[in-house]
Nucleic acid binder design. Structure first.
Lengths: 116, 116
DNA sequence: TTGACATGTAAGTAAATAGTTACATATAAT
DNA sequence: ATTATATGTAACTATTTACTTACATGTCAA
């Protein structure tokens, strides 16, 4: 599943399906820079991963999104979300400290200017 | 980058690095079911993707986490998070309706029992 | 029913991936 | 100085991936 969305072509396809559900194969092909078969195979991979479902209507195949499996990625990411927030906090703190230093040296300069 | 974490061995390695930063190559190897070179190559991929950084100290190489690039995955996922919550809501609603129906038929049964 | 259109299957290919063994180098410890 | 430890590099192999072209089937529409 992770591998299914690791490919940027497949992510684009999934985004496309999500934006407008019920598209046919040929409609989806139009947005991709490759042969119909290539697109079909990517869609097969997405379906295999459970990220899209298909329904056959007459001679065409319609594609629908199933976002469910993506929760797995989300929950894996969960543990790391904390980490980059921590980093962000540290960075913010650093910026604050830098600004304090700047303010301090500015004040010193003002004082010096006043003395002169 | 997506491809770097698409592999479950690499995800495990990354989790391992995250849990205890500053581990050496051989320490990390201990947790993996493959040769040292195999592990090294996976770590190289993770480093290439910017997910870990390394520092050489003496004869050993220490590994540190950099969670930053994972934000890209998080933000890509963002658009879909809404989707599965919607689905969840619909499901909940369905459950509520079902329970109402059950309550209704239960009441009907009570009434019938009372009549009898 | 015949032609056009949408999809499906088979088979082949070039390149990337995931792993290996064998050997080389650099540093620490005795 | 020698030996053991930690890492690095090279070269090779098997499998998977990401495509392709050529052909087959199924369905709509005139």
């Amino acid at each position: 599943m992770f591998k299914a969305v690791a490919d940027h072509h497949r992510r684009r396809l999934l985004d496309w399906v999500a934006r407008d559900e019920g598209q046919t194969l040929t409609e989806l092909c139009a947005s991709m820079p490759m042969s119909r078969i290539g697109v079909m195979k990517h869609l097969d991979v997405l379906e295999e991963a459970g990220l899209i479902t298909t329904r056959k209507v007459g001679r065409e195949r319609l594609h629908y999104l199933n976002p469910e499996p993506l929760r797995e990625i989300d929950s894996w990411l969960g543990g790391y979300r904390r980490r980059w927030e921590e980093r962000m906090d540290r960075l913010e703190e650093l910026i604050n400290r830098t600004q304090e230093t700047e303010r301090a040296s500015e004040k010193a300069k003002e004082k010096k200017d006043a003395e002169a």
